[in-house]
């Protein structure tokens, strides 16, 4: 395992970048963080499908067939193409869930009517690309399947969060400080099977 301080200020201006190279068996160490939610840089003002497919590079069929439960700001989403992601939006990705409520929150599901009043209303506002941040949460099967992709792309952590994370990985502190108090962390795993 190693970590490197990289200059990626062109990716997110003003942020110092830290890159970790870890063994694949350490992927699960990131699950609590991904489950709680991480901040990722993104071009916002786009559709949810664009965020997932174009920016996060998740294959289209995976988005359609596997990510069957999606929340935007606590609201179940049905239509990816008419849902606009804004700066600071919270996007949560999950596989199909059990139970009546699991079926109810499923994207475009047969039981969507049962969640009257909390569904995301699609089609509000036009798409317009601009730099921003999205809070991304991964649940259940998404952790192992999308985690490597998200971590490789990079996420923004508070300096303190990073130090705690490095400690949990038995990794030396980075020992740098940034003007913003935040760093861009990217993580690559060796010998990780590419599910896509």
């Amino acid at each position: 395992m190693q970590h490197t301080i990289l200059d990626q200020s062109d990716v997110v201006p003003g942020l110092e970048a830290v890159a970790l190279h870890l063994d694949s068996d350490q992927l699960s160490s990131f699950f609590p963080l991904l489950q709680k939610g991480v901040t990722v840089p993104a071009m916002v003002g786009c559709t949810l499908r664009s965020l997932l497919s174009d920016q996060l590079a998740i294959p289209g069929d995976y988005v359609t067939e596997r990510i069957t439960t999606i929340f935007l700001d606590n609201r179940p989403v049905d239509d990816l193409d008419r849902t606009i992601v804004r700066d600071r939006s919270r996007v949560t990705l999950s596989a199909a869930m059990p139970g009546l409520v699991g079926a109810t929150v499923r994207r475009g599901g047969f039981y969507a009517a049962l969640r009257q009043g909390i569904s995301h209303v699609a089609g509000s506002g036009a798409a317009s690309g601009e730099s921003g941040m999205v809070r991304l949460k991964l649940f259940n099967l998404m952790l192992a399947e999308l985690g490597p992709l998200i971590l490789a792309r990079g996420l923004i952590l508070e300096q303190g969060e990073l130090e705690l994370l490095l400690k949990s990985l038995s990794c030396k502190p980075v020992g740098t400080s940034t003007n913003t108090g935040q760093v861009l962390l990217t993580v690559l795993f060796s010998e990780l099977e590419d599910i896509f």
């Binding site: 489950q35 439960t69 929340f71 606590n74 179940p76 949560t92 999950s94 869930m97 059990p98 139970g99 409520v101 699991g102 929150v105 969640r115 909390i118 949460k137 649940f139 259940n140």
Partner: peptide, 10 residues
């Protein structure tokens, strides 16, 4: 598995 999802749904 439902805890996270129900919490997210409010």
């Amino acid at each position: 598995i439902l805890t996270n999802v129900l919490n997210e749904a409010g």
